[in-house]
Simulated assay, not measured.
Amino acid sequence: MAELILIRHAQASFGAADYDVLSARGHRQSAALGLALKAHGTAPTACYRGDMRRHRETLDGIIDGLGIAPAPQVLPGLDEFDFRAVLDARFGDDLPPGLHDDRKTHFRALRETVRMWQRDEIAGVPERFEAFRTRVLAAVDAMTEAGGDSVVAVSSGGPIAFIVATLLDAPPSTMVELQLQMKNCAVTRVVFTARRRFLHTFNETPHIDAETMAEYLTYS
């Protein structure tokens, strides 16, 4: 069977004016993951990433650690949904204090907001859930039908969580529960044939052990 290795991006810049930039720790995480994948014998035959800066920077670090990999292909279907815009659309002019810069406030609001978005209950969002669903599944089709035996793809928590929920035949509401527990640089493995796909592992962190946990274990 072939393997699709889905990787959530490394730590970005939560609370900053531009979230779509890796932190210094995020750069270290991605390089450490590349080294760990190399130590486990990973030799990708194809590489993909979303069209976001944090995806590109994460994959660059992973490739540095691996030492060699095929030239990455960009799949915008792997991009995260615009969670900030969805939150803003829900709350309008009545944003809760700390919505975009306090982690507890942000993630508490995000859980219910994502479920409202999935039920198409929020007007004015830049992307409806059905469009998100369609593009993510199209990206999976593109990666698994291209013929690679070991495919590495860097994406974000939302798309990866949706893929996992779909493979488990779970309701869409499961997506946000998976998304909120996903670690930065976590690895999710999907094995596939020409006809079928199976979830193999979820939320692995091969670059983290007892000594490196304080440095590399992050969630946003």
Rank of each mutant, 00 (worst) to 15 (best):
A39C: 06
D79S: 13
A32R: 03
R54E: 08
A138N: 13
F162A: 06
L33E: 02
T113D: 06
D82S: 15
D60Q: 09
I160G: 02
E177M: 09
A142K: 06
P70Q: 11
F91A: 00
D102Q: 12
G158W: 01
A39H: 05
Q179T: 04
V125K: 11
A69L: 06
E121S: 07
G65S: 09
D149Q: 08
T193F: 10
N184W: 06
D120A: 13
D120M: 09
D64N: 09
S30H: 05
E130G: 02
L199D: 06
T212Q: 01
E3M: 11
M143R: 05
A31W: 00
L95C: 00
E204N: 11
A69G: 04
G77F: 06
M175C: 15
F132M: 05
R196Q: 14
A69H: 02
G15F: 14
D64T: 14
V191D: 12
R119V: 00
Y216W: 10
F198K: 11
P126Y: 14
L37Q: 01
P171W: 04
L95V: 01
A138Q: 15
A32F: 07
T45C: 11
E112Y: 13
M1C: 11
E211K: 10
I7C: 07
R28Y: 07
M182A: 14
M1S: 13
G34D: 10
G61N: 06
A32T: 07
V136I: 14
E211D: 15
S23C: 07
R56I: 03
M175V: 14
R8M: 02
I7Q: 00
V140I: 15
L87W: 03
A194F: 04
E211N: 12
A32D: 03
E177W: 07
D18Q: 10
A146M: 12
A153Q: 06
Y219L: 15
R195G: 14
T188F: 05
R189P: 13
V187K: 00
P126Q: 13
A170I: 01
H207E: 07
V136H: 09
D18E: 14
R128Q: 13
T144E: 14
L137R: 10
Q11M: 12
C47Y: 01
M143T: 09
R8F: 02
C47I: 03
A214R: 12
I160V: 11
A186F: 02
D141T: 15
P172Y: 04
P70N: 09
P172C: 03
A161M: 04
S30P: 01
I62S: 02
L22S: 07
A170Q: 07
P206L: 10
E127I: 05
M116S: 04
T201R: 10
H207Q: 12
A138D: 13
D79G: 04
A12Q: 02
E3S: 10
Y19G: 05
S150R: 09
Q181C: 08
L95W: 00
E177V: 09
G77P: 02
E211I: 07
